[in-house]
Design a protein around this nucleic acid. Structure first.
Lengths: 147, 147
DNA sequence: TTACCTGTAATCATACTAATTACAATTAGA
DNA sequence: TCTAATTGTAATTAGTATGATTACAGGTAA
């Protein structure tokens, strides 16, 4: 079980739009980098657009970032692509037996604990921006060019 | 998409074994509290046993905790029931295009970030023990008895 | 031997994901 | 107006994981 790769693809898309700033980032172009079908990219782009992270117009080639890349966190992307429902990362079994003290209390006991864990994860994502990813990639490219 | 409810069920099982310390915690009994089929409980019990969290013997009724409940963290349960693979909470798309700088670097750029986020979640689980859950439930029962 | 227990596999239905195909709507340029 | 390229969306397929259920084998104590 894992969080859908469309989160990673969303990050890839935004990063590439930034790095390709002078160029035209069509869904075909983005799909080439991700190595997937353009329809997949368009689906995710639609989500990113609805979340206000990119601007794209029907019939007009090329997406652009709708916000400064330093202001887009990985949490924004995570929320945009809807890989996890709010407070819903962990499933809790339904209908435990209310005749049993554990059964009647378990949901509201572990629910808040699970929320804290989810929030910790989300805070870690909130600490990273697309700018950090772009910087990291540029650094890696410089290192690779040294080899 | 969410983490399987068998993690929550695992916590429920361990909590109930502790609270029912003087009694016999058969899989039938545990299943009654969880409101599921005993075969489900036995499956999860097998995992908890292999992880050294409970002791059960074939043919002999009743599971007992293999460790003090104050020494069993929710992270132990999470690992025991194998809901998430190590470092594998987030999926990353495979085979991005190596001809593109973003494509060739994205996996090793976001991989470590995803690990940090997963570790943050896991640390939050590590901070909670079955004892905390037991205490919480007992507190709630006292409050409920006041109504 | 019987009754009860644990342990495991198989089956089925459901939901989600990823990949692909098809096609409608929009836009710019000829 | 037509054409080509683009975005946007739905439908289909295949694979996987999950949850629920059933069946049955093996172990234990009386």
């Amino acid at each position: 079980m894992s969080i859908s790769s469309r989160f990673a693809v969303g990050i890839h898309i935004l990063t590439l739009i930034e790095i390709n700033k002078g160029g035209v980032s069509t869904s075909e172009f983005l799909a080439g980098s991700v190595n997937t079908n353009p329809a997949v990219i368009r689906k995710i782009m639609g989500m990113l657009k609805r979340a206000g992270l990119v601007k794209v117009r029907p019939g007009i080639a090329g997406a652009v970032l709708a916000k400064d890349f330093a202001d887009i966190t990985l949490l924004d992307v995570y929320r945009a692509v809807n890989v996890v429902q709010e407070k819903d990362l962990f499933s809790i079994h339904e209908n435990p037996n209310p005749d049993c003290p554990v059964g009647r209390n378990i949901q509201e006991t572990i629910g808040p604990i699970f929320e804290i864990a989810q929030t910790a994860l989300e805070k870690a994502l909130e600490n990273v921006t697309i700018q950090d990813v772009v910087k990291d990639i540029i650094e890696k490219e410089k290192l690779n060019n040294k080899c």
